[in-house]
Design a protein around this nucleic acid. Structure first.
Length: 545
RNA sequence: CGCGGGGUAGAGCAGUUGGCAGCUCGCCAGGCCCAUAACCUGGAGGUCGUAGGUUCAAGUCCUACCCCCGCAACCA
């Protein structure tokens, strides 16, 4: 059991500070990284900044600062934002760093050696918005870029280096065929497949140095600088030692998951594998034992946000600063909202009244109140402690006691199944489904937060206590222990809330996790009978007080 | 024939391999009293954008059509 998990976010352009769009991506990576860490996998979570773009130069000029100063300042802002939000990244790569330059150099040379870089003279239309060349067939009726019709296309006449991407077309299509989950969700695979089939041409991968002031110089040719996408993708390797630390690289590469926005799948799902296929031919570090290239395992493309139904934009002033948002709600609430409200992979709307609704119903009423009522009863009936029980009732005994049918049962036996499902969802990046399951359960099992509230209603410990203390103890223990499990189930999404739940049960999350590995944590009975229950705090105070 | 997303209950959404149409909120009527005016039960409310087609069976597959959203800049 020596599994590793290497997850990345895209590296962000830093011509402005982070907003909720980039926050969403980074939080997703954080959740998946946390879920793997919790499960004992060796985990590496990478994020960073893309600094070799011409856009950076323009932004620096606009701010009147020197490029270097500007980049340092902005990179700091990004890194600090993630830190303040409590995101658990292990490294923060900047493509202006030495290690990245070294990686790019090595990579370029490997590709060159494979004979996939050639010089060609081209007169082509270049769209500054896309940072990409456009063929005639890609232009709209007015001969403009369909994505940026208000931008004049540059007619570029120069001799550039090209990458023979088209040579890998078949191999990539084969990859899509063999590895159906290489691109997730499936609709993105369809999209990218038709792109590769129809429009996957050789890429220009350099510009003349005299025309651009940003970019890494082409190894051995200072008159050319490397096209930003060609260098940017390599960050996923440079951060784990490619070109600087072979052992480290072997430990982490290939990446298990590249998390990207739906707008950049072309680069990640087609160009990037082609680049690696090429470089791998002449770099043993990039080869599997059988000589095949070490490609990333999966690329997951998430959707975009609108804000209150409108596109996020500066002119509308609705680009939300995550740090401001974190003042309105605990950030865990935002994290919960992101992944409960929106199916991961789909577009969604960032809507304040929906956040309030989720907060009030899911978090305050269902989760917070459940915990509160269970703890209060236990404290009241059992002298401020977790009820003492000599032995646990089995499911059969339980059902007999309370005349329930199996689907209503909350307890040990149905727990294993639930955990399996939760693990599966986290493993396949279906964070939204995990949360839905925890809150709503399924038709087959009432094991859920809603189910726990029903269970209390059905068994009525507040009445039962007058007749049978032993049974009441069993019931309340069940509910409290179930809450402990819920805390661990939601830990990746709501790490702070999770801790608070564990504390409120009189346990210490740190010692729980250090004394028990994850397998133990998942077992029934981890909550110590007879331990002290502190007076409950309101986890989610009602809004608008 | 630019690219992509989408039209399912009043609102917001889910529906994987075709097999009784679900979830959250809201609404109506009850219940409970341990709890954060919270919790539980029952109910009303949908010809699944339109028109055809395939099938024993279509929200789901096929064809055509209609409508909505994003695609200057910021930007995942």
């Amino acid at each position: 059991m020596d599994k590793k998990f290497y997850v990345t976010t895209p590296i962000y352009y830093i011509n402005d500070k982070p907003h909720i769009g980039s926050t969403y991506t980074t939080v997703a990576a954080d959740i998946l990284a946390r879920s793997h860490r919790l499960r004992g996998d060796k985990t590496f979570f990478l994020t960073g900044t893309d600094e070799n773009s011409q856009k950076s130069v323009e932004a620096a000029e606009k701010s009147g600062k020197e490029l270097r100063v500007y980049l340092d300042e902005m990179a700091k802002i990004w890194e600090n934002t993630w830190k303040e939000l409590g995101l658990s990244f292990d490294d923060f790569i900047r493509t202006s760093e030495e290690r990245h330059y070294k990686a790019v150099k090595r990579f370029w040379q490997a590709v060159e050696k494979s004979g996939d870089i050639y010089k060609d003279k081209y007169e082509r239309h270049y769209c500054v918005g896309c940072e990409d060349f456009k063929t005639d067939s890609e232009l709209n009726e007015d001969d403009r870029c369909p994505l940026h019709p208000n931008k004049d296309l540059e007619l570029v006449q120069e001799e550039n280096y090209f990458f023979k991407a088209s040579a890998y077309k078949d191999e990539i299509l084969q990859l899509f065929h063999n590895q159906k989950d290489f691109v997730q969700p499936p609709k993105r695979l369809n999209e990218i497949r038709s792109y590769v089939k129809n429009a996957f041409n050789d890429f220009s991968i350099s510009r003349e140095s005299k025309k651009v002031s940003a970019g890494i110089p082409v190894p051995g040719d200072d008159s050319q600088r490397i096209y930003v996408w060609f260098d940017a993708l390599i960050n996923y390797m440079s951060a784990v030692g490619y070109g600087t630390d072979d052992e480290l690289f072997k430990k982490w590469w290939p990446a298990n998951l590249h998390l990207v926005g739906k707008d950049i799948i072309k680069f990640h799902c087609a160009l990037w594998p082609a680049m690696i296929m090429s470089a791998a031919k002449n770099d043993p570090l990039l080869q599997n034992e059988d000589g095949t290239p070490k490609l990333p395992e999966q690329i997951f493309a998430h959707g975009f946000f609108t804000v209150e139904g409108q596109k996020m934009s500066k002119s509308l002033g609705n680009a939300i600063d995550p740090l401001e948002l974190a003042k309105e709600y605990p950030f865990d609430v935002i994290r919960y909202f992101f992944f409960r409200e929106i199916q991961f992979g789909n577009d969604g709307d960032f809507n304040r009244s929906r956040i309030a609704e989720r907060y009030q119903t899911d978090l305050a009423n269902t989760l917070g109140n459940l915990l509160n009522r269970a703890i209060n009863m236990s404290r009241k009936y059992f002298d401020g402690k977790v009820p003492e029980i000599n032995s646990y009732l089995t499911q059969v005994e339980f059902l007999a006691c309370f005349n329930m049918d199996g689907t209503n049962f909350i307890g040990e036996d149905s727990l294993t199944t639930l955990w399996q499902q939760i693990d599966e969802y986290y493993n396949t990046s279906r964070i939204d489904l995990a949360l839905e399951l925890i809150w709503n359960g399924t038709e087959l099992s009432a094991w859920s937060l809603n189910g726990l509230n029903k269970f209390i209603e059905e068994v009525k410990p507040f009445k039962l206590i007058k007749e049978n203390e032993l049974q009441t103890a069993q019931v309340l223990y069940c509910v409290l222990e179930a809450c402990r499990h819920v805390a661990w189930m939601i830990e990746p999404v709501m790490p702070e809330i999770s801790k608070q739940i564990i504390y409120s049960l009189g346990q210490d999350p740190k010692s729980e996790i250090s004394q028990n590995n994850f397998q133990n944590l998942k077992k029934w009975g981890g909550l110590e009978p007879g331990s002290d229950l502190p007076e409950p705090k309101i986890l989610f105070p009602r809004l608008g007080e």
